[in-house]
């Protein structure tokens, strides 16, 4: 092994740490009390333990639901498929929800990947970019002629997660160190809104019409488009008031970053 270049040496050790590939016993020196195998095993084990610990911190409800051993085994599989490519462990769990969607464990029980999606959304909201929320006063400043074309920009912390299971309740019990809640799955999907109010991550459920309306605005639709879509749930004459109520609620929640209104037309 004396002729290995720095690149070859790093690749050799990395392949060992990732996959226990390569015979690298002769890579390292040893002492009688501390063998080559022991030395390599410290790095091999530490790699997995460190990453599993990061996932344990980010997905407490998933761990509580699966149990510590099954969680560690599943995370080891995940780490093997998705080694970190980011300087920070903060991003280690980013591909976990999708991994669990296609994993037999997640396919047997949708609550498993829904929990991961819900917990990851919490993390994404927790340290999302700061922004000052718009207020009801900003809405009051609008002229009647501006309403139909108004658009919204939401807070960067806004996350939307849909679940058939009671994943949010399981998560809530886990972070409060309450006893484990049994998984329940419904035939009806619920949509959850997650965002940061001041520094705290908060969440609430939305009904179908609010979900549709919020997603429409998220997709750069304007107030007129939103009203048109809401006709599916409400009589036409009630729709503008309903849409305005949603706006008011979102402003009170601190969900809206800015109200984008067209310039006021000059009357002469």
């Amino acid at each position: 092994m004396h002729s290995l270049t720095l690149a070859e040496l790093q690749n050799t050790l990395q392949q060992y740490l990732l996959h226990q590939q390569n015979n690298i016993d002769s890579l390292t020196l040893e002492t009688a009390a501390f063998t080559r195998q022991q030395r390599l095993a410290i790095y091999y084990d530490a790699y997995r333990l460190r990453l599993i610990d990061a996932l344990h911190n980010d997905f407490p409800a998933l761990e509580m639901t699966l149990g510590t051993e099954d969680f560690a085994q599943l995370m080891a599989e995940y780490i093997a498929q998705h080694p970190s490519q980011h300087p920070s462990l903060r991003w280690m769990g980013g591909k976990l929800p999708l991994f669990l969607r296609t994993h037999p464990t997640g396919q047997q029980q949708s609550a498993i990947f829904e929990l991961a999606e819900f917990e990851w959304a919490q993390i994404m909201s927790f340290d999302a970019e700061d922004s000052v929320p718009a207020t009801l006063d900003d809405l009051r400043l609008l002229k009647n002629t501006q309403w139909l074309d108004l658009q919204l920009e939401f807070q960067p912390s806004l996350q939307i997660v849909s679940c058939f299971s009671n994943a949010p309740n399981i998560w809530n019990a886990a972070i409060k160190d309450e006893s484990r809640i049994a998984i329940e799955t419904s035939s009806e999907e619920k949509t959850w809104l997650i965002w940061r109010s001041e520094l705290q991550v908060v969440y609430r459920v939305m009904n179908q019409s609010e979900t549709w309306c919020l997603q429409a605005f998220s997709n750069h639709k304007n107030f007129a488009d939103a009203c048109e879509g809401l006709c599916e749930w409400f009589p036409v004459d009630q729709v503008p008031l309903k849409a305005a109520q949603y706006l008011q609620q979102w402003l009170q929640d601190g969900l809206i970053k800015s109200i984008i209104a067209p310039p006021i037309e000059n009357s002469h």
Partner: peptide
Amino acid sequence: GTQGINLHDLLPLPYTQEA
């Protein structure tokens, strides 16, 4: 780490002239 992977460990270097 190498090849775009971060092992999140502080791995020792070989102490050579190349390094």
